Amino acid sequence: MGGTEHLGVRREGATLVLTLNRPEAKNALSLPMLVGLYDGWLEADADDGIRSVVLTGAGGTFCAGMDLKALAGKGMEGEQYRDRLKADPDLHWKAMLRHHRPRKPVIAAVEGYCVAGGTEILQGTDIRVAAASATFGLFEVRRGLFPIGGSTVRLPRQIARTHALEMLLTGRPYTAEEAARIGLVGRVVPDGTALDAALDIAERVNACGPLAVEAVKASVYETAEMTETDGLAAELKRGWPIFDTADAKEGARAFAEKRPPQYRRE
């Protein structure tokens, strides 16, 4: 199990919990954090014992975005990781889920600030839980910057264009209630309970057939930009093989026998 000084990694049963851990800087993105994140996504992909991932932040904050001091040329912590970035210049985009999509479901548990790069990473997650006092927004234009983590492409595909453009072009903060109303997050819970709620969702995901879960997630993203006809054809291509798996037979047998299923990824 990996992790760095700015990214905590732990297991909760079949769930891998990744914690952005730089609370003194509101979990602003750093090189150690990005390296740890990418390694976490790779670990989740490689380990069949992991069925879901929960992404959260330490110290009551999710992520306040890029370290602007580093961007201004004042240096970024974690120089020892520079060789990783040189070996893979795309590593930071993969870490932020811009150029990488884990095959396991990723559930975001948001407390406090989830702004700029935090909101951009959020768009790469699959299910999103927010604490009541959480704050969202893409502040880049207020600093004369561009939200290059994918937001001009992803956000209008995830929420109504008018809401996406207001968020992108005004750079204003959004409350958790507003974020839920426009569809950026799916659930708002009391402060301090976002992680527990995300872990509860993860546990429900983990109880399902893993081959089915991964195929369903893949189908949703694969067909998103297809015509309905092409999408339905692609869905059949992904879905039919699931019915021939031992897990599918176990699911039906467990239902008939009124017991929890024991899935084996077969």
Results as ranks from 00 to 15, higher is better:
E222D: 14
D244F: 15
A202H: 05
K69N: 03
S219C: 10
D200R: 08
P102C: 12
F255E: 15
R238H: 04
A248Y: 04
G149R: 02
L122W: 02
F62N: 08
T61R: 08
P23R: 14
T227W: 09
V141W: 06
D247V: 13
E228D: 03
G192L: 12
K237L: 09
G239A: 13
G36Y: 01
G49Y: 07
R264I: 07
G75H: 11
P261C: 05
A116E: 01
I159S: 08
L184C: 01
V53C: 03
P147M: 03
L7K: 01
I107R: 02
G75P: 10
E178D: 14
A130F: 03
L195Q: 03
A58F: 06
D90I: 05
A252P: 14
N21Q: 13
A202D: 03
K249E: 14
R22E: 11
S133N: 10
V17C: 10
L55H: 01
R264P: 05
D230I: 04
E24W: 08
G36L: 02
L85M: 15
A198T: 12
L236H: 02
V53N: 00
T15F: 07
E140M: 10
G209D: 09
D191M: 14
V110D: 01
R265E: 07
A234C: 15
E235M: 14
